[in-house]
Design a binder for these strands. Structure first.
Lengths: 339, 339
DNA sequence: TCGGTTTAGTAAATCGATTTAGTTGAATAA
DNA sequence: TTATTCAACTAAATCGATTTACTAAACCGA
């Protein structure tokens, strides 16, 4: 037996009929506008008790259709495999919920095509705003897609363009500090494993790294710089390259993301992690399990809560019509496990 | 300057006017129903070229309103802090995307109140179906909320009730196997740290644990059994209790979730992880970093991909009207790092 | 040239809310 | 007594699509 597969929704019209009033009256009452439209107390009570009895909940979808706001925001992230992005997503979801919004998510795997498709899908579904952790370094494509001019807030990565608002971590400072730490540990041959250079989190971290090398008069060897994607596989391959192709053996490695570090670990495991004994490590994005590893990883912990809240706050402002919003750069926290 | 904050949407009506045809015709054409409604090739081409030129994309929201299907499904999970749930979420998101659906997510933190609210919110927004990682052990509340009888698929945890469909890991078998492994390692005093007993993942894992103890004639000491929540804090407290209140010192600990294990680690850290030297560990939910820890953790890795795909497949079937769906139990994978 | 079929469309209802611009009857003021 | 105000509502338009039930013209055979 098919247990009642399609019960017709009870609508405002049904309530109106039951109460013997018009839809208008019901609408006023359920929206708390009864007083200003001078609906009598009796009518209010009659309608309310019927609403109660029938467990009537207005169809948010229909309401959204009429009001042109879906109370939904879209979030496109690279990949929640990364703990940092999971946490970011969670903060935004909580923030959204607190403000009565729902969150639609899509992960792009940092694929431009997937990102575009996700954005298009969100726009055609009339989200009220978008939060993007974008692979694109400028907003041209987004502007093209966004014919309705729905607010977009960029998160985690800087995207350039007119009237663009970004919420990012101070990646330059974070990388500088971690590299500085290496310097104070007397490392001289510091390797850098980065992500796609067009992504600001990769390039800014590299800039910070370079600046610190220069500042502390440390040698810069192109051999020790590898760029790939922000993936575990890329981290594995980069490490392999570092140890097989480089002329100099590094005494420290800086990975620009958690995933890259995990790839590094994977490679090191093939040698029973021995190679890590003599190498100092620093990475972006902390992970709670780092505390329990046999080698000490210094890291930059991004303030996901503040980032998420800030981004959502900007979204709200943008929805309210304020489109001249300043970029926000959030200071990271340093987790120094070995100094 | 406010950069054009509200561009009015271009609608099917505008296209119709531009092409000098009716809305009906445009609708037929953009939905590929031109032939069966005998629209002439010229008209088709004229309309299509205008659609192209104007970059017209039909408003999915309006369409959903009319068709009573939003092509959206709602997912309620406990907490994406848990890597396992992140991966599950991601699989479902990809699966949804491939089928042209969007995914709305909410995390409940295993709070019944939050879960109910999330479900209510999703239902009032007319999602086409729900996937729930629920805190509730039966579906009474869900039935009450679900007056429109929208399909619900339960994931990860068993929920009882009439016409309920669940996709779960074989938790009993997983726990049995891990405990069995302890037995073969000659452990005798095996502790169990579980989550909320009303949640099937906790109780089933406990059942499997108990059954293995019995099967291998291992002593069962209530002192070594602690139940709490599936959180890091609870894991910490449970471990503390285990080491301070128990009369017997455990030689093995089984944690029923990744978060509980992380809590255990946190407690152990206060003693420089020394206490872990003599204790064997097994846990549900693997984590890639376990490979690099100085102590070997055996684990059960749930097949998030198969679980997510199966759940989404059932969702599709349910949407198509098939409500008599069988529960699916998915075999886990064992990751034995120490045998 | 008439009746019937085919071709190529269109008008209008509908989904479930919100909102504008009324209407009605009673009470009050002049 | 008549005009005005006010309290208490309501009819109908609207949002952007889909879909049902038409219509008008062309064509075709007898």
């Amino acid at each position: 037996m098919n247990p009642n597969p399609k019960s017709p929704t009870i609508s405002i019209k049904d309530i109106a009929r039951m109460a013997g009033v018009s839809k208008t009256t019901v609408s006023f009452i359920i929206n708390g506008k009864a007083k200003e439209h001078q609906i009598s107390t009796e009518t209010i009570q009659k309608v309310q008790s019927i609403v109660e009895q029938m467990q009537f909940v207005p169809n948010e979808f229909a309401r959204g259709f009429r009001l042109k706001q879906t109370k939904t925001i879209g979030l496109v992230v690279g990949d929640v495999y990364n703990h940092f992005l999971s946490l970011l997503e969670k903060t935004i979801e909580i923030e959204a919920r607190n403000q009565g919004f729902n969150l639609v998510i899509a992960s792009s795997d940092d694929d431009p095509e997937l990102e575009s498709r996700a954005i298009q899908s969100f726009l055609s579904r009339s989200v009220d705003a978008l939060i993007l952790v974008s692979v694109y370094s400028d907003n041209k494509i987004h502007q093209q897609l966004n014919t309705r001019n729905i607010p977009i807030i960029y998160l985690d990565r800087v995207v350039t363009g007119r009237h663009v608002t970004c919420v990012t971590t101070d990646n330059y400072a974070g990388a500088f500090k971690l590299t500085e730490q290496f310097a104070s540990q007397s490392c001289r041959h510091i390797a850098f494993i980065g992500g796609r250079p067009s992504i600001s989190t990769s390039s800014e971290r590299f800039r910070g790294f370079q600046a610190a090398l220069e500042h502390y008069h440390l040698p810069y060897s192109p051999d020790l710089i590898v760029h790939g994607e922000f993936t575990v596989e890329a981290g594995y391959l980069a490490t392999k390259q570092l140890f097989s192709a480089a002329h100099i053996y590094p005494d420290a490695i800086f990975t620009a993301s958690y995933t890259l570090l995990e790839g590094l670990f994977q490679y090191a495991r093939e040698f029973n992690l021995n190679i890590l004994q003599r190498i100092k490590l620093a990475t972006f994005d902390d992970h709670p399990l780092f505390d329990f590893l046999p080698f000490k990883v210094n890291s930059v912990q991004q303030n996901t809560e503040l980032m998420g809240k800030t981004a959502f706050d900007l979204v709200l402002q943008a929805i309210r019509g304020n489109r001249n919003l300043e970029n926000v750069v959030i200071p990271p926290k340093f987790i120094i496990r070995q100094s």
